[in-house]
């Protein structure tokens, strides 16, 4: 059980830093096609920002509720990734061959680019939720059962 940190410096800095880290995580996630970065690093940065908010404001703070809700998304990232592969099969091609994504008005290379973005989002969600859930199971006694049972 992590309680709220009692230093006002940590609170003020946390309020300033956490949104910046989240924006940077999204930037890394979506800029991974043009520079260094990608789904894995973006997901870890997004997860770290949520872990930071739990470490600073405690488990019971109102802004930690959304982090607890994020625990329910375990497996959603994998579902997105495999779902993109399934859509490719519905489009009439091989599993994860993004050229078969059925989107009108896009040429083959743009379809593959879009497929890369979607699967990177899947990886990012999976990694972020895994990082949060490991931290929660390391730090909390009954928080996981609470958030799952009601």
């Amino acid at each position: 059980m992590i309680r709220q940190h009692d230093s006002i410096i940590v609170h003020t800095l946390g309020r300033f830093v956490i949104p910046v880290v989240q924006i940077f995580g999204l930037y890394v996630l979506f800029f991974g096609q043009y520079g260094p970065g990608g789904g894995f690093v973006g997901g870890v940065i997004l997860g770290s920002s949520m872990i930071l908010s739990v470490l600073i404001f405690g488990h019971d703070a109102s802004r930690s509720q959304i982090v607890k809700k994020a625990l329910h998304a375990d497996g959603v990232g994998l579902l997105i990734f495999a779902g993109v592969g399934g859509l490719c099969m519905i489009g009439g091609g091989e599993f994860l061959n993004y050229a078969n994504l059925e989107i009108p008005g896009l040429e083959t290379a743009s379809r593959r680019s879009l497929g890369i973005v979607l699967t990177q989002i899947g990886v990012a969600v999976d990694v972020a939720v895994t990082a949060i859930s490991i931290v929660f199971s390391l730090s909390a006694e009954e928080i996981i059962e609470d958030s799952i049972n009601g």
């Binding site: 994998l78 994860l96 890369i116 990177q120």
Partner: peptide, 20 residues
């Protein structure tokens, strides 16, 4: 793939099953 970062193109497109 219209993806300038070759690492991302290899990881997410050519080797996407491995990444999955």
């Amino acid at each position: 793939t219209h993806t300038p970062n070759v690492v991302t193109a290899v990881l997410m497109d050519y080797r996407s099953l491995d990444t999955m």
